[in-house]
């Protein structure tokens, strides 16, 4: 039995199913938080987070459901947070865009494009000073490349040889604006390659491929101490914010989506497992188990109490 691929699949399924459960309930308008859905990017989040050690650290963006779930293994706190409940770590102060679980190495996610990148570089500096061997991975979209602070941060990490992995999750869109309207250059990878930084480029939606690539990048960082840049392509299934499709709005076509849908990371991994002779019934059982946990934690989140008014000024300073 292929243990690695099964473990990867469990995480993929958990992430996809968690978002499907969100969609089912979102229009009840009880989750009052702007959802930026991960659907389509699961292979990147799962592949990389699975390759990291538990005490390695990651930073995310407002589109971090997949990264958070893949890195932390938490579900209960996640649902409580997006329902804004007292039982969540942040007691609903953060919502969908600001997830945080330092004990699980998820160091935070920011809703200002590119703004977590320098924070990740500083965290990597502290790890290097402590000599604790931890690697920091920071996820961001191709829109972040447009921001000055990305270049400032990349430069500093390369200059000081810091153990950080920059992961560009390239969906070719900054909200709705394509790269052709934003980029005055041909290839981000070739520019970054001119820095003292190892660059890896991949367009696959196969989680195992991403996992192997992440292992290579982690090995390079642990070996050299310096940073890596991962240029990874994916397709955003849903609208920028919200839980619906938006192919009718005209800025992209359903045909393009269908092309990517054929190599959907979750379904593809399922087929791979069946090909590897894992019984379908066994997969069904695993999926049911995951779904049960998700549905139960969602119910728990729905019935949990809201934070009291006394919470508002706590932990400001």
């Amino acid at each position: 039995m292929d243990k690695l691929n099964l473990e990867l699949y469990k995480k993929l399924y958990l992430v996809r199913r968690a978002e499907e459960e969100i969609i089912k309930c979102y229009f009840d308008d009880e989750m009052k938080t702007p959802m930026h859905m991960s659907m389509g990017e699961e292979a990147i989040a799962v592949g990389i987070c699975h390759a990291l050690k538990d005490d390695d650290q990651v930073f995310g963006t407002y589109r971090s459901h997949a990264i958070y779930l893949a890195k932390t293994g938490d579900v209960e706190d996640f649902f409580a947070e997006i329902y804004g409940k007292d039982t969540a770590l942040l007691k609903g102060k953060g919502g969908s865009m600001h997830l945080c679980s330092p004990d699980n190495g998820f160091m935070g996610s920011s809703a200002i494009v590119a703004s977590a990148i320098p924070v990740a570089v500083g965290a990597a500096f502290a790890n290097k000073m402590a000599g604790n061997g931890r690697i920091v991975t920071v996820f961001f979209g191709d829109g972040a490349i447009d921001e000055g602070v990305f270049w400032e941060s990349l430069n500093a990490a390369c200059l000081w040889k810091l153990p950080v992995i920059f992961v560009c999750e390239d969906n070719e869109l900054a909200v709705h604006t394509p790269k052709s309207l934003r980029h005055g250059y041909r290839s981000i990878s070739s520019i970054v390659a001119d820095f003292n930084c190892r660059v890896f480029k991949e367009e696959s939606t196969d989680v195992e491929t991403i996992y192997r690539l992440a292992e290579k990048a982690i090995g390079a960082v642990r070996g050299s101490g310096g940073p890596c840049f991962l240029d990874l392509r994916y397709y955003r299934y849903l609208e920028h914010v919200g839980v619906s499709e938006d192919f009718k709005s005209g800025y992209r076509s359903r045909e393009e989506f269908e092309k990517w849908r054929k190599k959907d990371p979750v379904e593809q991994q399922r087929k791979k497992l069946i090909k590897k002779r894992i019984k379908e019934e066994e997969l069904d059982k695993i999926e049911d188990g995951i779904a049960e946990r998700l549905i139960n934690s969602m119910k728990a989140a729905q019935s949990a109490p809201f934070p009291g008014a006394g919470e508002i000024e706590k932990e400001v300073l």
């Binding site: 990148i117 320098p118 941060s153 500093a156 200059l159």
Partner: peptide
Amino acid sequence: DTPLSEDAMTGFGLGAAINGLRP
């Protein structure tokens, strides 16, 4: 000394601070 990157260097300090240093 640092590069002339005030924004990133502020975030850098934040990252170092949440990870145990006192910048």
